[in-house]
């Protein structure tokens, strides 16, 4: 039996949590990935993305919560669902003493639902699709990281899939390789495959995906369309002045929350009901020496950092 083609969500989780010892690696995550979308799963290193993916694929058991893949409960229906799912999980894993081609043949044979008769052609097509045909006979231990990554993608493409789960697919790839992966994802999406891509690189997700979810420290902090994430960013006003203290008090009086961005530079997100010119008039009236005013829209990166927190601290 094939998974319900009509199920509107390709991936659905409800209240998903995973506890390792005293740490909640994944905390109450409810994902909804629409069919046919290219879904970006964003978050800094250690935010629980890979653990979530492992649970989705039935590699790890959830401490709490439910998972449905292509409408079927996981891990219970894994034997039925997983043949329709191609995956690249936490980097490629291959037998170094076998050639790229033999690795794919073996992994294909591991799935009891594949047809041995078409194996040879399917393996060659997958290799061709990721541009690895010329190196197919080489042993994998001679592959570069980028080549292994491509082979991992080829493995996910061994048969037509309804859902692709790609964990950091461009890791180790050169800029050309990254572009190729983007094209590949786009063309797969045009064929109707749902693509679930995780990444810690915002730019990558921004270019590929039409909807996204953002993880931070195990929690889902945002989920929705890419455009909505962009639009949600608020404009910021920046005021250049030597009278920082007075300016801060004055802006705070208007209901803004200014931060010091430089030695003589205050910045605050604009709030509804306060126009920039109002703020400038109030500053001048208060005797603040205003040397420059600038209004800018918040970049997606600002938005992302605002959601996930700043700095180099890896959650963990």
């Amino acid at each position: 039996m094939t998974p319900q083609v009509g199920a509107p969500l390709a991936v659905e989780t409800r209240g998903l949590s995973k506890v390792f010892g005293s740490q909640r690696a994944v905390d109450d995550v409810s994902l909804q990935v629409p069919r046919g979308s290219v879904f970006g799963f964003l978050g800094p290193n250690g935010s629980g993305k890979t653990t979530t993916i492992r649970i989705l694929l039935g590699l790890a058991a959830a401490t709490e919560g439910e998972v449905r893949l292509l409408g079927e409960p996981m891990p219970g229906r894994g034997a039925v669902v997983l043949p329709h799912v191609g995956a690249l999980v936490e980097g490629p894993g291959f037998y170094p003493f076998l050639s790229g081609r033999d690795n794919l043949r073996r992994l294909d044979a591991a799935d009891p639902t594949t047809t041995p008769r078409t194996r040879r052609t399917r393996v060659e097509e997958a290799l061709e699709r990721v541009g690895l045909s010329h190196a197919a006979a080489k042993k994998v231990h001679a592959y570069s990281l980028g080549m292994k990554q491509r082979l991992g993608l080829a493995n996910a493409l061994l048969r037509p899939r309804q859902l692709l789960v790609l964990d950091e697919p461009t890791n180790g790839l050169d800029p050309q390789g990254t572009r190729e992966v983007r094209h590949l994802v786009r063309s797969l999406s045009e064929d109707g495959t749902t693509v679930f891509v995780s990444s810690h690189l915002l730019g990558e997700i921004e270019q590929m995906c039409d909807s996204t979810a953002v993880m931070s420290a195990g929690r889902l902090v945002w989920q929705g369309g890419m455009e909505a994430l962009r639009a949600e960013g608020r404009a910021r006003v920046r005021v250049r002045t030597p009278d920082v203290a007075e300016a801060r008090a004055c802006l705070a009086g208007l209901g803004l929350e200014p931060d010091l961005e430089g030695p003589a530079l205050l910045a605050a997100p604009l709030v509804d009901g306060v126009a920039t010119e109002q703020a400038v008039a109030a500053l001048v009236a208060a005797g603040v020496r205003v040397r420059g005013v600038e209004v800018s829209g918040e970049t997606l990166e600002d938005r992302y950092v605002a959601l996930t927190g700043e700095g180099f601290d890896v959650a963990g």
């Binding site: 590699l59 894994g78 999980v89």
Partner: peptide, 18 residues
């Protein structure tokens, strides 16, 4: 240790069968 276990299981090879 090779990282192939997760790909065999996702294939899905089936744990008992493996």
């Amino acid at each position: 240790s090779l990282g192939t276990l997760r790909y065999l299981l996702v294939a899905p090879a089936g744990r008992l069968r493996l």
